[in-house]
């Protein structure tokens, strides 16, 4: 078992993150069912479309609280390094793809993908730190 799972902060993280991810999934389904394609912006469509974003924000807050509340300082440092690598990874993709979009006719990268890309960056960070410490 990874030592982070034994940190009491991780239990608190799960109690925050799991409900938020369930709300996110439900909100995505709700928005897909309730809002027709190419619907114009109205208070109702905006309200429904904001729900998944709100759930996403809670997930990001839960991840931030994990970093703040972790008691093992070395494991916290590892997680912070991973988050920094993920941030660099996501920013590099956003900047590079954005310039490609500006100068060529590549498909547009939906902005809502930035959070999943950042999460993918955590895996890159994990791999990088593993290779570096080997």
């Amino acid at each position: 078992m990874h030592p982070i799972f034994r940190d009491p902060a991780y239990n608190r993280y799960l109690k925050r993150f799991i409900p938020a991810s369930v709300i996110y999934a439900m909100a995505i389904v709700l928005a897909s069912v309730m809002i027709p394609d190419k619907a114009s912006a109205s208070p109702m469509t905006i309200g429904i479309a904001l729900l998944p974003g709100l759930a996403c924000t809670i997930m990001i807050w839960a991840m931030a609280r994990l970093l703040v509340e972790m008691e093992d300082e070395y494991l916290r440092l590892i997680e912070i390094k991973k988050a920094l690598i993920a941030t660099g990874f996501a920013l590099a993709i956003a900047a590079t793809w954005g310039l490609l979009e500006l100068y060529t006719d590549v498909p547009k990268l939906p902005v809502f993908l930035m959070f999943p890309i950042w999460c993918g960056g955590l895996a890159v960070g994990q791999l990088w730190l593993k290779v570096k410490s080997a």
Partner: peptide, 11 residues
């Protein structure tokens, strides 16, 4: 020390 074994190893 109430830390992980990984922490002790790293130190």
């Amino acid at each position: 020390l109430a830390v992980s074994r990984q922490s002790v190893n790293a130190i």
